[in-house]
Design a protein around this nucleic acid. Structure first.
Lengths: 149, 149
DNA sequence: AGAAAACCTAGTAAAATACTGTGAAATAAT
DNA sequence: ATTATTTCACAGTATTTTACTAGGTTTTCT
């Protein structure tokens, strides 16, 4: 019952992209800032581009940019596309041929409630929300380190 | 982001135990009813006994019994003990030495909210609730099959 | 005594996870 | 035009987790 590195790294990468929405962000920069392997980030970002969430710009001075403003992404969007699905059991996933016991299964109902609860959280937090929190934290860190001098 | 068979099977097994709270239920019976390997169920039930959730009675005419009334188990109890944890990331787990970025991490907050949401669901459904639903379904199935004659 | 159950420990095949590696294609800077 | 820089694409691999299987011991009822 864990969110994998793919989803977690994707979130952190998207926040990086959201920080300079007008200039492309390079993978190598994200890698350095976040301490995550470049190659692995490339792989993850490719699912984001395929989903149309980011635009890749090739060549020197290239990088990645969000294709929409940060407020239009939910955490759920990002996690679902990178994780594959947030359903806690396979029988709740979209394409799954419902396991015949469909309407008989009491545990299925429990899992549906769990799924709804998860979606309720992640669909109500936007990338912009994360960005704002991140900026607030960075600010307060800058202030406290300035105070130490 | 999936609940494993251990957790799912444990729930179904506990429902079986809850159905005859006064007589021991044999693993072989659960196995037949649920179509799950005996040996695997044995392994799962051992974590339930170690947690004190069920009592094993050895010997012929033995089996397993709930150690408390069904209303005193939450689905969360059962899932947590069999799954290990329901935290969506390792850094939220009990014994984990919080990853230094503790208070700086914006994504951690998201994951905490997810965890809280999951717990909110599973801690508010009791084994008795599941049992009742199960019995209702069985009844309606019996009625409809009787009507066919 | 014998059968039937729980209990215990170890092993194992398959899948998923978390990467690494190689190189091609596009673009900007020189 | 060439070179450097970046995304892009695809393949490979080590580790971990999952989902079991297997064999045997112990306890207790009949």
């Amino acid at each position: 019952m864990k969110i994998s590195t793919r989803g977690r790294y994707a979130l952190r990468m998207m926040i990086e992209f959201a920080m300079h929405p007008d200039t492309p962000t390079k993978i190598v920069q994200v890698s350095k800032n976040q301490g995550i392997s470049e190659k692995y980030l490339e792989q993850i970002v490719s699912t984001l581009t395929k989903a149309g969430y980011v635009k890749g710009i090739r060549g020197a001075s290239g990088g990645y940019m969000l294709s929409k403003p940060a407020c239009e992404y939910s955490v759920g969007d990002i996690l679902r596309v990178t994780e594959g699905s947030l359903a806690p059991v396979f029988c709740l996933e979209d394409g799954s041929e419902s396991c015949e016991k469909d309407k008989i299964c009491v545990t299925r109902r429990v899992f549906k409630k769990i799924e709804d609860a998860i979606n309720g959280v992640v669909d109500n937090i936007s990338l912009e929300d994360l960005l704002k929190e991140e900026l607030e934290i960075n600010e307060s860190l800058a202030l406290s380190s300035a105070a130490q001098r």
